[in-house]
Computed example of a mutant assay.
Amino acid sequence: MPSLFDPVQAGDLRLANRIVMAPLTRNRSPNAIPQDIAATYYAQRATAGLLITEATAISHQGQGYADVPGLYGTEQLDAWKRVTDAVHAKGGKIVVQLWHVGRVSHTELQPDGGKPVAPSAITARTKTVLIKDGIPTFVETSEPRALDAEELPGIVHAYAAAARNAVETAGFDGVELHGANGYLLDQFLKDGSNKRTDDYGGSIENRARLLLEATRAVVDAVGGGRTGIRLSPVTPANDVHDSDPQPLFTYVVKQLAPLGLAYIHIIEGATGGPREIEDRPFDYEALKAAYRQAGGRGAWMVNNGYDKPLADEAVKEGDDLVAFGKPFIANPDLVRRLRENAPLNAVDKATMYGGDIKGYTDYPALD
């Protein structure tokens, strides 16, 4: 039986263990540029088998929160190169999460103060973050506009360009498309947010079209073995839902299977909440089986509320990778602590979003 600490292959990525640092938004990148402390932060956590960066905007339009990083400018890419160099110097592997937030944004964050974009002009009942008087402040999202079909190829191109820049210029080992948590690709997938009547709305095949086009474009840009994707079948995050998620996500993973992806990253249950949602049942084992039966060979990564015993059980039952989120914020040496069954530092919730080194690079490691 494999253990959590055994190496594993994920596409082109040979990982030293099966512990993954999940993407964690920290709002410490003014002007969408990662600061020097980001290199320290990620390098401190490089003992993870794989680091997935905080979600990173593929374009200015794709930004939805203040002080989150981007991949569309020279300064951004140069800053990320310092991060990847620091991680590689510690022997780690790091991929960047490609992000377009869609409607989960605010006019203050959009180019020329424009409306956020979405599959349909339905405002998300959720909040985003602006900086007010130097303080991260939660505000209601702005009313979006529906994307014209003619705009969608440009968004697909932005995903591919960001992926190519990430690997070829910024030095990342790969990329992960953010297709989860109620952001743009997830908004198109789910019928609660997608009311289109063109080729990108209505049927499962149509609603999945943008996600699949973006994924294929990224694979063409950097190779399937360097590409992962994150999916969240039933999370209510950012006001998304689907009336029948099992056949929707079964179709998606069957279409992803031939692309030779490095991994599929599945959020089980509600992001940051319960692993099972009473009114949104979902069979994750059946989803994994559908992917394998369709020829999918990428690593299967599970996420949401995992501790050491639950992670051990997941690996024994055939999951290849386990992603840990908040524990990595407060425990830069989480891999060692899990291996030694050592106590974990608690997260300082007051310093999670915005700020400087406090609550970012100053959490203590074991002696």
Rank of each mutant, 00 (worst) to 15 (best):
F5N: 12
Q9G: 03
G11M: 01
D12V: 08
L15H: 11
P23G: 07
T25N: 08
R26N: 04
N27V: 14
N31E: 15
Q44N: 05
T56Q: 14
S59G: 14
A66E: 12
D67C: 15
T74C: 03
L77T: 00
A86V: 07
A89S: 10
V96L: 07
V96D: 01
Q97C: 13
Q97K: 07
W99K: 00
W99M: 08
S105Y: 01
Q110L: 00
D112W: 13
D112Q: 13
G114D: 12
P116L: 07
P116A: 04
T123H: 13
L130H: 14
I131E: 13
I135P: 09
T137P: 06
V139G: 06
T141L: 07
T141I: 03
T141M: 06
D148Y: 10
E151I: 00
P153N: 04
A161S: 12
A163E: 04
V167Q: 08
E168P: 03
F172N: 02
E176Q: 08
E176L: 04
L177V: 11
H178A: 12
G179K: 03
Q187K: 10
Q187T: 13
R196G: 09
R196Q: 11
Y200K: 12
E205C: 11
R207G: 09
L212Q: 04
E213C: 04
R216T: 00
V222N: 08
V222M: 07
R230Y: 02
R230F: 02
S243D: 10
D244N: 14
P245K: 12
Q255F: 02
G260D: 07
L261K: 01
L261D: 03
D279G: 10
R280Q: 14
P281Y: 01
K288G: 13
G296E: 05
W300S: 03
W300R: 08
N304R: 08
L310R: 15
G318V: 04
A323T: 10
F328A: 01
L334K: 02
V335N: 05
V335T: 12
N341T: 14
V347C: 09
T351L: 03
G354A: 14
Y363N: 05
